[in-house]
């Protein structure tokens, strides 16, 4: 009897595959993949800072009761330059923005900030891009909205556009 059963297993596996395939054919495959981390607490991390004005960033800094934005950027990333004025406006509106410099080097980041503006309170240096995986980001730039208890509430994939600024300000005020 067990032998008989063993002979049917390949057929059963194949039937499962066909069922999955029929499901799969019906779904649209072009949606961007959102981070699995939304609604969850920020994972523990502790990144080195850039310089005296920009101390490092750790998960502890995100649990201090203020709503914060965390922006993943890189001096090598050209879209990040396009995004800089919008971050500037957000920071002028009083929102706390921390940066995480992905696969970058100190002098290059400093030059980037002098050239394109510096909206960041803290900057964590992430030379190996580890935080991208920890936060579930798929590229640079990406921005995460984190509430006062350190829970990730929203994610913006790609450049923050001008028309999104007011929406983000409203969202931060709502959570505050």
């Amino acid at each position: 009897m067990t032998k008989r059963l063993a002979l049917i297993i390949p057929l059963l596996l194949f039937v499962t595959f066909v069922a999955v395939a029929i499901f799969g054919l019906g779904t649209d495959s072009n949606r961007p993949i959102e981070s699995q981390m939304i609604g969850q607490a920020v994972p523990d991390f502790d990144l080195q800072g850039l310089d005296a004005q920009h101390p490092g960033l750790s998960s502890q800094d995100l649990r201090q009761g203020t709503v914060t934005l965390v922006n993943l950027f890189g001096s090598w990333c050209l879209p990040c330059r396009v995004e800089a004025p919008q971050l500037e406006r957000l920071s002028e509106a009083g929102i706390v923005i921390h940066g995480i410099a992905i696969r970058d080097e100190g002098p290059a980041v400093t030059e980037f900030l002098t050239r394109y503006g510096d909206p960041f309170r803290r900057i964590g240096m992430d030379p190996r891009g580890r935080m991208q995986i920890e936060l579930g980001a798929s590229g640079v730039p990406e921005t995460f909205l984190i509430d006062g208890t350190g829970v990730i509430r929203r994610q913006w994939i790609g450049v923050i556009r001008e028309e999104q600024v007011d929406e983000i300000i409203a969202e931060v005020e709502r959570l505050q």
Partner: peptide, 23 residues
């Protein structure tokens, strides 16, 4: 769907034959 039908026919057929005959 067409390919899936072919797949079902050939792979399903061969595996059914296997289940019946291999014993």
């Amino acid at each position: 769907l067409f390919l899936l039908a072919l797949l079902g026919l050939y792979v399903g057929g061969a595996l059914t034959l296997y289940a019946l005959r291999a014993g």
